[in-house]
Design a protein around this nucleic acid. Structure first.
Lengths: 234, 234
DNA sequence: CGATCGATTGAGCCCTCTCAAGAGAGGTGG
DNA sequence: CCACCTCTCTTGAGAGGGCTCAATCGATCG
């Protein structure tokens, strides 16, 4: 397999402070692979043999409870690293990563991490920032689940998805990968029935337009308003 | 102010891989300070001027929403670093840190971080692991809030607090710092009324013994069982 | 064109919140 | 050292948001 072209990734936050030859050396240790929609990149509990960078597509990270319930932790957008369990000192992946859409991924063997990070300390700094911002996001979610009603949480989640992975279309902003009511329920701690009722309501009010695994925000500002409005303040 | 004695901190995860003189050099950049119970070490939104290591006592990190509601993110135990916003690239503290009990803290100016991490790359690795394990904890909390009922969440929270900061007493395991029903409510996303009702029930069942800001787990195993039992499985 | 997967919608219930009141424990100041 | 005041905890009553159970519809894909 050919080496990855450095120009594809040179501007990513992960490689801040890493110049031409250094970057090329890092990339030489990686291989790329394609994952078709709905296939798993890795599974929860599996030996953490590699870490990853998403080149294109979208990857969903989810955790399964002992009782078999699934919770979606996040969606990975192109340019982000994921499956960095090895860097955090974990032996096994704490979640399952599934291609939400056909995806292309760079893969480094875990064994390369200590060597790379010793030679290129900027990698540690950049990873620390990436993990730090995920910690902030996770905290935000805890706060929302503690203080907001379901409708607000769904609104916040859609706004965030649209900002992270929105695509401008004629009628508004479309979330750029297939996402079901069930997925949104698993991101907001509710049931697919409740999500369906909420989205049906919004569709009738003209706020969104949606179909099978497809959501277009027609009036993003009014969804933001819903997200921020205190309950009862109607 | 005298330099901190390296022997006090040499075994902490934060300083793994750092030997005598290196450690002494790192500690020379820190000062120590005492915070009486209920005083703030730093406040949410404030300029992130420093990062910290807790030597003794307990510190509560909490976030306040725009609507004024508070959510407790975690309790810091002795030996842990906190307020590492600077290392994650944040300009301001994302939460408020309050001494839950009289506490002694090591303080490094943020400006020291880039210099220290360049000279001692192990610091970046160790911090990455610390932030990584917090991310795992935060994920655990999201999963619990998504899938469990309030009683299970309270049980899980008490078990975790007892493991992290429990002290053996004759009658069981006591949580080693003052903690109110309100604090537990803000950790589990419920109200102090509901927490009070749950703890009253457990007290009558002989599972715990409690008083003003004080909780003793008399039968930790049975609390663990409550935490893990599926709802309805009674 | 059938089968499967996702979405919709109704009915009823229950867990938890809200509102309300009061009791007990500690700390503090005179 | 006592009285008061504040903070924490308890407990009841009632309401409601969201879940569970159930059935149907629609769309996409092989």
């Amino acid at each position: 397999m050919a080496t990855v072209d450095p120009s594809l990734v040179t501007d990513l936050p992960m490689f801040t402070g890493l110049a031409g030859e250094d970057l090329a050396e890092i990339l030489r240790e990686a291989r790329s692979a394609r994952y078709p929609r709905n296939s798993d990149v890795f599974s929860q509990g599996e030996d953490a043999h590699s870490f990853f960078l998403l080149l294109s597509g979208h990857v969903r990270a989810s955790k399964t409870t002992p009782a078999g319930e699934q919770v979606v932790m996040r969606y990975v957008a192109p340019g982000e690293i994921f499956g960095v369990a090895p860097a955090m000192g974990l032996k096994r992946y704490p979640a399952t990563a599934t291609a939400a859409d056909d995806s292309v991924v760079l893969i480094w063997p875990s064994a390369a991490w200590p060597r790379l990070v010793t030679k290129f300390p900027a990698l540690a700094t950049n990873t620390l920032q990436a993990v730090g911002s995920r910690l902030q996001e996770s905290f935000t979610r805890v706060v929302e689940m503690s203080t907001e009603q379901v409708e607000q949480r769904v609104a916040h989640t859609l706004v965030r998805l649209a900002r992270q992975s929105g695509r401008r279309v004629e009628r508004g902003v479309e979330i750029d990968f297939p996402i079901s009511r069930q997925d949104i329920a698993q991101m907001t701690g509710t049931t697919l029935h409740t999500v369906s009722r909420i989205l049906s309501g919004w569709e009738q009010a003209g706020l969104i337009e949606s179909g099978r695994q497809r959501i277009v925000l027609r009036e993003p500002d009014r969804i933001v308003a819903l997200a921020e409005q205190a309950p009862g303040e109607v």
